[in-house]
């Protein structure tokens, strides 16, 4: 709140584009991770990272445009991410019970 009261606004200091670059960079790091890593749990984390990049972008747009819809969208993304993480981890646990491993490359019984 204090920031607001002083009339501070981030975009007076930092251009919006820097925030966007930051979030795009995060997104691409996450994407790289998804392509590069094979451990399912790390893949899951990379996807979370991508989602956070999206969130950051939404929030910066929302602040910049002075429109609250973007922030609400972020709220829903967080909600869904939580649900997704729960299901994903449950799947991982059930895989682990079978194979004692979470490495995706061990699961190559089905060939493309």
């Amino acid at each position: 709140m204090s920031l607001l009261e002083t009339g501070f606004h981030i975009f007076d200091k930092v251009g919006i584009s820097n925030y966007l670059f930051l979030s795009v960079l995060l997104f691409c790091i996450g994407l790289f991770g998804v392509l590069y890593r094979r451990n399912a749990i790390i893949l899951l984390m990379c996807i979370e990272l991508m989602l956070n990049a999206v969130n950051l972008m939404f929030v910066s747009f929302s602040s910049y445009l002075g429109d609250s819809n973007g922030q609400l969208f972020v709220f829903f993304i967080m909600v869904v991410a939580a649900a997704e993480a729960a299901v994903g981890l449950a799947i991982l646990v059930s895989i682990y019970r079978n194979t004692r491993n979470t490495d995706v490359s061990f699961l190559d019984n089905l060939k493309g």
Binding site: L44, I47, L92, I95, T99, V104, L107, L110
Partner: peptide
């Protein structure tokens, strides 16, 4: 749950789904 193929299908579907959602 007991079949590795089903497990694999689930994790693949999940990862691809989450990835594409992102």
């Amino acid at each position: 749950k007991k079949y590795a193929s089903s497990n694999e299908a689930a994790i693949k579907y999940f990862l691809m789904g989450a990835f594409s959602t992102a």
